[in-house]
Each structure stands twice: as structure tokens, then as C-alpha cells.
Design a binder for these strands. Sequence first.
DNA 1: CGACGCCTTGATCAACTTCAAATTTTGTGG
DNA 2: CCACAAAATTTGAAGTTGATCAAGGCGTCG
Lengths: 248, 248
Amino acid sequence: MSGHERKDVHNSDVPILCQACEARHKGICGALDPDQLVRLSKSTTKHVHAREDELITAGEEPQRYSNVMGGIVKLTKLMADGRQQIVGLQFAPDFLGRPFAGESKVSAEAATEVRLCSFPKTVLEEMMQESQGMEHRLHSQTLKELDEAREWMLTLGRKSAQEKVASFLYLVATHIDPEREIDDKPIVVELPLKRSDIADFLGLTIETVSRQLTNLRKSGMIEIENNRQVTVPNLAKLRNCTEQNLDT
Amino acid sequence: MSGHERKDVHNSDVPILCQACEARHKGICGALDPDQLVRLSKSTTKHVHAREDELITAGEEPQRYSNVMGGIVKLTKLMADGRQQIVGLQFAPDFLGRPFAGESKVSAEAATEVRLCSFPKTVLEEMMQESQGMEHRLHSQTLKELDEAREWMLTLGRKSAQEKVASFLYLVATHIDPEREIDDKPIVVELPLKRSDIADFLGLTIETVSRQLTNLRKSGMIEIENNRQVTVPNLAKLRNCTEQNLDT
DNA sequence: CGACGCCTTGATCAACTTCAAATTTTGTGG
DNA sequence: CCACAAAATTTGAAGTTGATCAAGGCGTCG
């Protein structure tokens, strides 16, 4: 064992906090060198938030940024009369918080229990000054979110209720384990949202969501284990439901 | 007049091409110093595209980036069965093209006659290496587009047909002259889209768009001059229609 | 003029919402 | 662990909104 220099010898420089962290590699922290990582980790706090905790309030300027370490965060917009729209879901190791920009235009709420790794705005801004890599990572994440938002605009504007619900299930199923390929093996999908949230994500009512889930169950696309768990026997088939071609 | 040193004396260093350009200040070129500006302008071509010209094709990787100098560009997504959704409109001096990323996930088409100032991908990437400012500007534009996309998700998911059409008119009216404040003076709005495009932007059918325009006309919110021109006597009132509170 | 593209209007229809229970699940305290 | 209350979900019936189908008008261009 000894006598053999491990590739990871430099891990000794990496804060313990960060060693097992996804954000360290796939998230924004991947842009940092060990020195910066140490500095950042000094002002870092980890926190577990319960479901329903408000993480960012629309109209306020958050003073801290975070990496999502675990759990799922929902981003919402609210109208004066109470109508609501969920405009995005964030999974680990997504970055949470709006770079530069003053107040956030969306609220962020823990959809499940969420683990965050947070740090002051100022420290991140410092590191953005030092290395281009950091802004580049943030920019990449913003581009990804923009793609997702536009994809969802298509869902909201042009898909039927059935397609919407299938699209939601497909989205969640494919984000649980991003490595997984679309094969024929059944997947147990843990739903991060309750029906009313799913409705707010899809621009539907809870009743319609419920009915469409029932339809998908009856047509064998899914099995409903309980309110928060659905089994998808065949993901490829479910994907077909996200964009039905009703021609011919 | 002479004998008085003008602030703009350095304009002599700025390519003639760029001197009257909006993008030079408000667009991404604002991040460049005169030297870079000269270099960029050397590989720059201006081009006028007719309405309906396809500027970027979804699924292809564009080799050139552009600044929108004039006119309006629509970004669209298409489903296999022909359903379409417009996911964004771009006005001068917006940047057009997807940094880094491989293929574009949206198509871009000239909604009106459009003037573009284009340059090879490689040159922009060079300048991103040299100065942080450039990536920062691009990042800012991406953030702006993300905000707009999410705002529109609320419109698509949660607003009534009437509110959607009012939202569209309000969006266009407020983008014609971004300087203008919301006062009571009538505005003549040049619609950049025909009815079927408005429908694709709002997730409606042309018939519904037409009917809602008629409704807004009958209720005095707008005057319809012709298919492509609408007068808004009172923008503030129109804004109220974008989010009606039907309570009480 | 006549054809075509675009828009409007009317009538009917279907999808989704709303309203109203009934049922199941979840959480809490004894 | 059970009982019970509260919350969430499902289901049914009726109502609305917006879609679809169909016809006609208007403007432009050859």
C-alpha cells in the first residue's frame, strides 16, 4: 500500500469538507484550485433544510450563495392573486443563487429535504475575479438552465395534459441518476413534488394531474406505489408519451 | 467648437463600423477595448436578412456569432408532429448564438427584416480568453434571457388567453423603446409577428389570438390600425390586463 | 381580375377546470 | 400501536375556456 504513490496524494490539500462533494467536480467548485478551495471552505457552512423551507425569497437579494448537495429545490413565481408557476427544479450539484444581479426574480424552496453548502456572496465574487474558470462554470450552468427553461416552455405551451404529466415523470426519472441510460429496466421514481406542486409546474390543476396519473397507470406506463413513489417499468415507452404523435 | 477637446476624441480609434452601433455600448462589444474592437471589426460582416430567413438551425452548430443591429429575431422550438413554440424574441443589441455549447437547441428566424453584425466563433473565443469582461457580458445576457424565459413560463402556464395576448402586446410595446417610461401617452406598436406566430408564442391558436385582440379592442385597451399595427392609448391600463385580478 | 395568404367571425366540440364529495394517507397524542 | 384529526389525493358531475371546423372578408401581387 505504501511505497505506492497514490494519484490522489494532493487530496491532502483538499478540505475534508469538499473531498466527497459532487460540486467539487461537477459543480462550480471544480473551477477552483486547492488553495482557493481551502479559502472558500473556510467561510462555508453546511445546512440541512426541511421540506418547505424557503431558501431564497423573490424580491430580496440573497447574501449567500449555495451549492445543492442533496435533495431537490423548486424555483417558483407567484402572481398577485395567488396563481403560481414552478419555473425550475434544481438537483445536486447545482448552484443556487443569482450571480451579480440584484434581487432574485424567483423564490427557491426546498421541495424535499435539502442539504446546502453555502458561502458569502463576496467570497465567490473574489474568486470570480481571480480565475476566469469560475465565471465560466456559472455561465455554463446558466446556459443549462436556459435550455431547460425553454424546453419547458414548449411543454407548457404546446403539450396536452397527458404529455405534460409524462414529461414531468420523465424529467424526474432521468434526473435521479444522470448516469443511467435509457434501458428497459424498471425505475422506482421518488417524486419530489406533491400533486399541487406538479400542477404548478405543469400549468394544470391538481385534479387533472391526478386523472392523468391514473390514465398512465391504466395504460401500463407507470405503477403508483404511493403518493410519492411511482415505478416506471419502461422509460423509453414513457418518453414516447411525452410527445405523442396522434397522426394517422 | 474647436479648441475644446471632445470627450469622444478616442473615437478615432474606434472602427467607423462600430461608432454608431448600439452593441458597442450596451451589447457585448462594450467589453472590448479599442484595440480588440479593431481586431474584431476586421472579421466582421454586416448582413441584412429578409423576414423569414433562418439564422440558426436547431441541431446545427453555428460557426458564426452575431449581434442583432436592428429588427427582431424569434427563437423557436419544433415538435416532431409540427407543433411549435416560440421561446424568445431578441431585439437590438442582443447577442445571437450559443457560446461554447455544441448544437443549438433552438432555431432562430428573422421575424422582421433583421440587420446582423457577425463574426467567426473563433475570434470571439479569443477575446473571451483575453478579457474577462467579454464572458461577463455574455453571461449577463444569458441571465437576462433566463429571467425572460421564466417570466414567460408564468405566462404560458398560468395566464388566461386574454392575459396572454395583453402580455404579448405589453412585451412588444415596452421593447420598442426601452428608454420610454410608462406614461399615459399613446404608443403605436409595430407587431413583429403575424397571428400564427403570436399564437405559437402564447401557446394558443390563431383564432383565439384574433378573438382576444378583438376583445381588447372592444374594451378600448387597443386600437387595431392594421394587421401589423396596434395603438395602445394607455400602457399602464394594458399592463393591468396582463394580470387581471378577477376577485371581489 | 383572380389567386393566395392572412385574418376574422361563427358554430360546435373537447379538454381542462371548477365544484363537490368520498377516500386514502399522514401526522399526532394518548 | 391505535385513534383521530388534518392534509392530500382521487373521483364524479357540471361548467368554461379555448380548440377545431368551416366560411367569408380583406389586401396584395402577378
